[in-house]
Design a protein around this nucleic acid. Structure first.
Lengths: 229, 229
DNA sequence: TAAATGCTTCGACTATGATCGAACTATGAA
DNA sequence: TTCATAGTTCGATCATAGTCGAAGCATTTA
């Protein structure tokens, strides 16, 4: 009847509470099994199975069978982006899931978004790289400068391996808590990986929260200073 | 139960076919009355009224009473952005509303997105401005350069009036058909306005399609050349 | 082989919510 | 005032789809 793609189908897919919980859980970037997702969503295994089939059918998830487990993950960074956008709208309408609990501030400070660092510290990372001209932004796409390449290699990230994947090296991602762009893509994932390897931060199991140790946060602030305005 | 804002509420709001049609219709950027929207959505006035109340309650729309009419518009550019994102996912999943009809190519070539030009020609406009250094992009936000200001003024846009509004002068907006960023914000709106005033293009009533005349398209191509790569 | 685990399918129940007719309110025109 | 148009509210109807018990596959372990 109307023009353009069929929005309602996709939105309705996300609009069920159980499915929304599943998708939110997968925003951690990790692939989870059907049983784990059933637990996250608070429904029985049969119900979850039905939901997962629908999400898979709607191309929001990818499924991968491994032995007798079936692992699900978000289909793409685009899906993650739309989910973040919806979170922004929901937060703006004041529809928080519950009164801001103790986990909320931690979530705003540093969390995993699909596979990279988001929240306060994610923004800080991005701003620092941009301010020192390690990144250049043109037309909504980001690229690593020569100086940036040297810095990143020095930081312990192997650019050669990174560039081989099909995923773009640098991407922008919009933050629901900060309403700002931050660094996604293969490089964003690599940075988060380094933070964990160096013991600066660890991920809180069963949550999107990333907890920096006191030492780790100090090191982070040293490595990624903000320019004076 | 879970962390973060309540995605399901917003998504379910968008997920009803009638409401999705209403929102899609409002992507034209124009404010429409309840009756008009009922027609667009293909439901009775009573039903539409109920839907509009819910959308208003969920902060996706703003309502404005004028005489015995009530005009509705999208609440913000953020809402429009999420809707475009959903269109991208829907198109990617192959869920077009109908088999690509005759209107589809026209829609991909040039259409209205909230209040600015999108599609093929929207991208071209943006690329041309960027290629000639009339725009500068830093950290996901765009700004007009000095040379750009001169060009725009020369084109017939009064920057003084534009800058007074609360809305940012330049913004980025992601395209569902091109999967690229294009120019939004007050300047994007002003450009579209100039195209219509100059008789280069006209909007097809009751649709998001922008139809350029043959002369208009030639003039457009002349005014916004693409640099050689 | 048998037993156990992970997931899917089927079927029945149920609740949510979309829909519209009818009655009501409000604004504007004659 | 009277009439017409725009929109809201109420109530009844009805369909969609979310839910889980039970049974069925499939894969791994013993």
């Amino acid at each position: 009847m109307k023009e353009g793609p069929d929005i309602a189908r996709v939105a309705a897919l996300i609009g069920d509470p159980a499915r929304a919980n599943i998708l939110t859980a997968l925003m951690s970037g990790k692939a989870l099994t059907a049983s784990e997702l059933a637990g996250e969503a608070g429904v029985s295994l049969q119900t979850a199975s039905s939901h997962l089939a629908k999400l898979d059918d709607g191309r929001l998830l990818t499924a991968r069978k491994q032995g007798r487990h079936k692992y699900f993950a978000l289909a793409s960074a685009d899906v993650a982006g739309v989910l973040e956008g919806l979170m922004g709208l929901a937060a703006g309408a004041g529809h928080l899931r519950s009164r801001p609990g103790p986990k909320d501030p931690a979530l705003r400070k540093a969390r995993v978004c699909y596979n990279h660092l988001a929240g306060d510290m994610g923004i800080r990372l991005f701003d620092s790289l941009l301010g020192r001209a390690f990144l250049s932004v043109t037309g909504g796409s980001v690229a690593l400068t020569d100086a940036g390449g040297a810095f990143v290699t020095d930081f312990g990230v192997d650019l050669g391996t990174l560039a081989t994947g099909r995923a773009p090296l640098c991407r922008l991602c919009l933050d629901w808590s900060e309403r700002r762009s931050h660094l996604a893509g293969a490089l964003g994932r690599a940075f988060l990986g380094r933070f964990e390897e160096s013991g600066w931060a660890e991920r809180v199991p069963g949550s999107r929260i990333v907890r920096f140790s006191q030492r780790g946060e100090a090191a982070f602030n040293g490595a990624f200073p903000l320019q004076a305005a």
